[in-house]
Every structure is written in structure tokens, then in C-alpha cells.
């Protein structure tokens, strides 16, 4: 269980997140949605520890500010928006996911194989990450996250560089992590995708959390329509949103 209590975050004098209180349960997929500059990525950066904050973020009773680097790697793994170019092979990069741990070589290789397969990039294993497309590189970093096998997976707009097929692949794989008891917190702009994959929805607006609850509740209360000015429609039992 991840709990955020009275979270405040500033960039200079500007308050970006204000009094955020949220809790994230194990085995659930949380879609964090909101307009541009609403504070979604800052929330992810606070949880991952790259941005300083006021208040507390507690995971299984332990404040994230007080845990060691290795414990943090065991607890939280994060996929950021812009995947840095690298000359390492996709396989080598994936293996970096286990760099904080002392695995046996065979176990590590097995984890790498599984992660590459889940991310759908086994065929790219020996290619250099700087020689694959931007979307494939994003999947390479995602494979690294899968290989890291942390309790909480943070995804900051992970599908921004991906085509529809790979977007579905990544989100399905992330959803699959929930079945293994992991918590997935995903910042996502595509509202239809968010509703399709999420168990719970968090809506951030102007640095404040305006809704947090089950997907069904979000749909019943027309939260998305009210906050984003979109209309909801259904095709073959799948819900879509459009302006």
C-alpha cells in the first residue's frame, strides 16, 4: 500500500501540487489523468524521489524519504517520458534493471529474457538502443522496468512515442503486472485508453486532486466529461471520449 499524505510541491515560488492525499492499493492499475501542466508528472517525480516535496509518501509503513537506494529500487521503478539514447544493446539495457541486486547470472538472464518477451522486443535484443526507433527505445526502457520487478511501477506518459499496437502491448503488459500483485500508476493523456486499462482513476487539476476512485464511479459521476469537456460514447462495450 502506497499512501500520500498532505503532499505539497513547489517549483520556485509556484505551488505545483497542493495538499494531495491519495492511497494506492496493491494489484491495481491507477490512471492519473489531467490537463497539461496540472501536476501529473510532478506527482510521479515526487513518488519516484527525483523531486523534493513536503508531506509524506509512505510505502508499507516506511517513509520513502528514509529508505536506502537499494530499497528504493526494490520498491519503485519508473519509466519517464523521454528515453535517453544509448549505445548499449537492448539486452544490456534491460539487464540494468537488476543492477541494484545481486542475482545469480542464470537468474538474471532468465529475468531479462522474460522482460524482453513481455515488452515484445525479444527480436531487438542484440540491436543497439541508439539504432532502434523512438518507440522501440521506449519499450526497451519499459523492459528494463519489468526486469527491475519493483513493487510499484510508475509510468509517465509511457505511450507518447508508440503506435496503437505497441501502446496496447505496453499497457497490457503493465496491466499484467497488476495480476502479479504490483501497483501500476500511469500518467496518461489518452482518456479512452485510461478508462480501458485502469481499475482506479485519479484526476489532477491545477495541482489538486479533484477525483480519486474506482473507474466505474468515475464514469457514473461523469468526472471526465466535466473536467475535460469531452463527450462519452460506447462502441462494442468499449468507452471512448471525444470533443
Amino acid at each position: 500500500m502506497l499512501e500520500i499524505k498532505n503532499l505539497f510541491c513547489h517549483y520556485g515560488k509556484r505551488c505545483v501540487l497542493e495538499n494531495i492525499n491519495l492511497s494506492f492499493e496493491e494489484g491495481k492499475f491507477y490512471a492519473v489523468i489531467g490537463k497539461n501542466s496540472s501536476g501529473k508528472s510532478t506527482l510521479i517525480n515526487c513518488i519516484s524521489g527525483v523531486k523534493g516535496y513536503g508531506g509524506s509518501i509512505v510505502c508499507d509503513g516506511r517513509d520513502l524519504k528514509s529508505i536506502s537506494d537499494k530499497e528504493r529500487a526494490e520498491t519503485i521503478s519508473c519509466l519517464y517520458q523521454n528515453a535517453t539514447q544509448s549505445s548499449f544493446t537492448v539486452r544490456e539495457m534491460c539487464a540494468f534493471g537488476r543492477s541494484a541486486f545481486r542475482d545469480e547470472k542464470a537468474e538474471r538472464e532468465s529475468r531479462v529474457d522474460r522482460a524482453l518477451e513481455k515488452a515484445g522486443i525479444s527480436h531487438l535484443a542484440q540491436r543497439r538502443a541508439c539504432e532502434v526507433s523512438g518507440g522501440e527505445r521506449q519499450l526497451c526502457y519499459f523492459a528494463m522496468n519489468l526486469c527491475q520487478d519493483a513493487h510499484i511501477l510508475l509510468l509517465d506518459e509511457p505511450t507518447s512515442n508508440l503506435d496503437a499496437e505497441h501502446e496496447a502491448l505496453l499497457l497490457s503488459a503493465a496491466k499484467g503486472m497488476c495480476c502479479e500483485g504490483k501497483t501500476v500508476i500511469c500518467v496518461i493523456h489518452n482518456l479512452s485508453r485510461a478508462i480501458k486499462y485502469a481499475d482506479n482513476v485519479v484526476v489532477i487539476d491545477g495541482g489538486k486532486c479533484v477525483f480519486s476512485g474506482r473507474k466505474e464511479e468515475c464514469l457514473e459521476k461523469n468526472v471526465i466529461e466535466k473536467n475535460f469537456g469531452v463527450k462519452k460514447y460506447a462502441v462494442n462495450d468499449e468507452i471512448f471520449f471525444a470533443v
Binding site: 517525480n45 537506494d69 519508473c78 519517464y80 535517453t84 540494468f96 527491475q148
Partner: peptide, 11 residues
């Protein structure tokens, strides 16, 4: 690999 990714990997 970048500061944020390195941090996420426990560095």
C-alpha cells in the same frame, strides 16, 4: 542513461 532513470535503478 540519464539522472532520473539512474535514480530509479537505485543509484
Amino acid at each position: 542513461l540519464g539522472d532520473n532513470t539512474a535514480h530509479s535503478l537505485g543509484l
